[in-house]
Simulated scan of single mutants.
Amino acid sequence: MNSVEDSAGRPRTRANANRGRILDAAMTCFAADPDASMDDVARAAGVVRRTVYAHFPNREALVDGLSDEASAALADVLDHPEPDDPAVALAVGALRTWPVGDRFRMLLSFARKEVGDHRIAELIAPVRTRTVDVVERGRDSGLFPAYLPTAVLVGMMEGLTMSVLEQANFGLVRDDGESMALGVLVLAGVPVDRSPDVLDDARRWVVSAHGRDDRRGDPRGTEINAVKGANAQR
């Protein structure tokens, strides 16, 4: 059976290929114009308007579908082992989640207005939970200074992430998550002069983990391919 892949790298069967095509078109349309209509999305997807409404009865349902896609993609990239070193784990998390954030960054332009802060909070909750755990491990081991409450610090990291993604919208950030990773490390308390070395360790760990997944036949790792390809060009 012919199939394509969704944004998280999972196979799409013929039965849901139209839905995936519509979501891909919606991301493109909303990135160019947050006020794009359902007709605009249908034209971009190469389907008739009736097909769009069969999957998404209104604009709100379509935006919810995009949010669900982003949530599933985040869940996939977080479902991997992580390094024992909390600093390297923070950087690995940034490198792994960047491709998802980069792909869905257009949601930041209008999602709060469309779906509300509560839905956005639900979307990033798994990342927040993981980051809190890593920061607390780093503090317990003495690696990270406890200069702010963990919840406040993690909130600042989320704000930094949103800001870097917004700068990517303007074409001012063109890397594969390195800027975000370095910023998160410095916020955590890693010395500025040591952060690039930690980032290098994180890159190597991600590529090595991808190799282990390949040997196990694990189909995940779309986000790791991007990092591996970027490293090969350096």
Rank of each mutant, 00 (worst) to 15 (best):
V4K: 12
E5N: 12
S7G: 15
P11K: 13
R12W: 14
A15F: 15
A15Y: 14
N16G: 05
R19V: 14
R19D: 15
R21P: 05
I22V: 13
I22L: 13
I22Y: 07
A25C: 06
A25N: 04
A42D: 01
A44R: 05
G46V: 11
V47G: 01
R50D: 07
H55Y: 10
A61V: 07
L62I: 03
L62C: 03
D68K: 03
A72F: 08
L74Q: 01
A75R: 15
A75P: 07
L78W: 12
D79P: 01
H80I: 11
P81V: 00
D84H: 11
A87C: 08
A89M: 00
G93V: 10
T97I: 06
P99V: 08
G101F: 10
S109P: 01
K113E: 13
E114H: 06
E114F: 10
G116D: 08
D117K: 01
R119C: 09
A121D: 12
I124W: 13
T129Q: 07
D133K: 00
G138W: 14
G142T: 13
P145C: 11
P149V: 00
P149D: 12
L165G: 06
Q167A: 09
V173P: 11
E178I: 09
M180G: 07
L182N: 01
G183V: 11
V184D: 07
L185R: 06
L185P: 03
L185N: 03
V186G: 11
A188N: 05
G189T: 14
R194L: 15
P196Y: 10
P196H: 08
R204K: 12
V206D: 12
V207K: 00
R212D: 13
D213K: 01
R215I: 14
R216K: 10
G217H: 06
R220C: 08
R220A: 14
E223G: 02
A232M: 10
Q233K: 00
Q233G: 00
R234P: 02
R234Y: 09
